[in-house]
């Protein structure tokens, strides 16, 4: 069966499709996050290997939000690029909708990271490579949002912010290598190395399921925001004035 993908690139088709998907993503988000955190709090040991006490449970929100923050940046660049290449309005709307949820995830990762730092290393903040590069990720997200809202003409603001997003992409691999350093002599970091192989299996399950929950949350909020953007940008079209929620 041949699917015409460009059919879904029409804001009108996407608006109704997203409307049907949002409740499903919310259900998935709530179920997965609840199961993940339940597993994390009730099925895991209180102390793990290298003397870490109960406080390691912060990682369930910290890792999930940090992964989503980086992943969503990639998603944002993907849609911005599709927008530049195919000149589809919807792709730019998706990129712009993704930026805010990405920012929220980055803020959660930074707050929970600071709390983690206080318990684990005895300090809320340090200019360690991982922490510093993650703070830059926040600035890049904020820069994208600021640039988008600074230019009134949406077509120009979409293009300009797409380029900014693309340039900012450089920070994502740097964040990754800031901690998984190939040569430990070259980078001294407080931040624990992220190696999934060494994580106890129950903790790993809880972490992955919570991350999936956060991912579904991201889908739900991004689709909600995209629908708002579609309504705003297409308010003069006849299909919007014929929507049941507008007519009532």
């Amino acid at each position: 069966m041949k699917i015409n993908w460009f059919k879904y690139a029409a804001p009108m088709t996407f608006y109704s499709l997203a409307g049907r998907l949002i409740p499903l993503f919310w259900i998935a988000a709530i179920v997965l996050t609840t199961v993940g955190l339940y597993w994390g709090f009730f099925k895991t040991p209180d102390t793990i290997g290298n003397g870490m006490k109960e406080y390691y449970r912060i990682i369930f929100v910290h890792v999930a939000s940090a992964w989503m923050a980086m992943w969503l940046y990639g998603v944002m660049v993907f849609w911005a690029l599709i927008g530049v290449i195919f000149n589809t309005r919807l792709s730019y709307m998706l990129a712009s909708a993704t930026s805010i949820t990405g920012t929220v995830m980055t803020i959660i990762a930074l707050i929970s990271g600071a709390i983690w730092g206080k318990t684990s290393w005895g300090t809320w903040w340090d200019w360690d490579p991982k922490l510093t590069t993650f703070l830059i990720l926040l600035f890049v997200y904020v820069g994208y949002i600021a640039l988008q809202s600074a230019i009134d003409d949406t077509r120009r603001s979409d293009k300009a912010s797409a380029l900014l997003a693309l340039v900012g992409l450089a920070i994502v691999p740097i964040i990754y290598y800031a901690v998984n350093c190939p040569d430990p002599n070259q980078c001294a970091s407080l931040h624990q190395e992220s190696s999934l192989k060494r994580v106890e299996s129950n903790i790993l399950i809880a972490m992955l399921v919570t991350t999936l929950g956060f991912w579904m949350y991201s889908f739900a909020t991004i689709l909600m925001r995209t629908r708002n953007i579609i309504l705003e940008r297409e308010r003069k079209t006849s299909w919007v004035s014929n929507l049941p929620e507008v007519k009532s």
């Binding site: 209180d46 006490k53 109960e54 406080y55 449970r57 929100v61 707050i111 709390i115 983690w116 318990t119």
Partner: peptide, 11 residues
């Protein structure tokens, strides 16, 4: 949480 409650619950 073994004394870490404030940290865990605030995050």
């Amino acid at each position: 949480m073994g004394g870490y409650g404030a940290y865990i619950w605030s995050s």
